[in-house]
């Protein structure tokens, strides 16, 4: 909203430059400002209805009480106490912390792989492909998997990775293994594989965008100063891609943190994740407990993003 009103500001300024009576000017400036609010209103309403209100409701419900058959409006911290039950008593790690650690592990692995692959693909399309027509074609090619749904793309891995799937059959036919490898499907490996498959494009797009905004003469200037290709990459391209990397990282981290479908399907419903915990509680109609978990998860994700934005000042870079 503030952005829209800032954009509208130059207009009254330009109008002020015109020699005219002062009262008319003030009225015009007021009109312009009102117009700016109207222009910002639709998006503000969407945000209010689909973001602010649900968030407030979740926060509210997280303080309610519940039993086996009903939820009771009240104010209790019991739900939060349940989330962290046994976490601060020392000894073994509590369930919540173990779940968060597992989710964080997936986050880090998925982030590292999507970043590595995403950066490489974006680099290839942005700097190695010369014709802009070819760049567009290849870039669109990256988005083609999105023409099918997440679930289908995930399920497609099952006939490939299963005990009698294509990969195991192929390995055995080649004589590389005697017995089928069990760990391919319904394992950490399968979960990370699916995360990388589903989310790499969210890295490619912002990083590619950052790369396309790098002035090509900078690369020549680096070469002129004696930089090798590798030095140019680390001292010029990577620093200038930081905003893209940060945006891509936020996409991937938030998507993986809140995921429960991928972990469920690819982990054979055997691997815990924060999203999964919330989903299970929802299915038992323990809405206040689920809401409390959701608020804690939101806090965790916000912390991660705050950490990222400390590293890179996104508002300045954009």
């Amino acid at each position: 909203m503030s952005l829209a009103s800032e954009r509208a500001m130059p207009v009254p300024a330009a109008a002020a430059a015109r020699p005219a009576a002062a009262p008319g000017l003030a009225a015009q400036a007021r009109r312009q400002r009102r117009l700016a609010y109207w222009q910002a209103a639709p998006l503000a309403l969407v945000f209010l209805a689909f973001f602010a209100v649900p968030l407030a409701l979740t926060l509210m419900v997280s303080f309610w009480e519940y039993n086996e058959y009903e939820i009771i409006p009240s104010f209790t911290l019991q739900n939060y106490a349940d989330v962290f039950e046994g976490c601060f008593s020392g000894g073994d790690l509590c369930t919540t912390f173990r779940t968060y650690l597992s989710t964080l592990k997936f986050c880090l692995l998925a982030w590292a792989f999507t970043l590595g692959i995403g950066f490489t693909v974006a680099y290839f399309v942005a700097f190695h492909v010369r014709s802009s027509a070819m760049q567009t074609v290849l870039f669109l090619l990256c988005t083609i998997p999105f023409w099918t749904s997440n679930v289908i793309r995930m399920i497609a891995w099952i006939p490939l990775l299963g005990r009698n799937g294509l990969v195991n059959d192929g390995l055995m036919a080649l004589g590389l293994t005697r017995a089928p490898i069990d760990g391919l499907l319904y394992s950490d490996f399968a979960v990370v594989l699916a995360f990388v498959h589903l989310n790499t494009v969210f890295m490619i797009v912002p990083i590619f965008n950052s790369m396309m905004r790098i002035d090509r003469s900078l690369l020549e200037a680096a070469r002129d100063a004696g930089a090798s290709d590798w030095q140019t990459l680390w001292t010029v391209i990577v620093p200038l891609c930081k905003p893209g990397i940060a945006i891509g990282s936020i996409f991937v981290l938030t998507l993986v943190m809140g995921d429960f479908v991928t972990v469920g399907v690819m982990g054979g419903q055997q691997i815990a994740s924060v999203g999964k915990v919330i989903q299970v509680q929802m299915s038992y109609l323990q809405f206040p407990a689920a809401a409390a978990n959701a608020v804690v998860l939101l806090g965790a994700v916000t912390l991660v993003i705050a950490g990222l934005t400390r590293l890179i000042d996104l508002r300045r870079e954009l």
Binding site: D215, S217, L218, E220, A221, A222, R223, D224, A225, G226, V236, L240
Partner: peptide
Amino acid sequence: APAERGTAMMFQSYALFP
């Protein structure tokens, strides 16, 4: 390569690293 020639270039748009 440029650096091995003993030359240095000043670019039209200056090409300073932002």
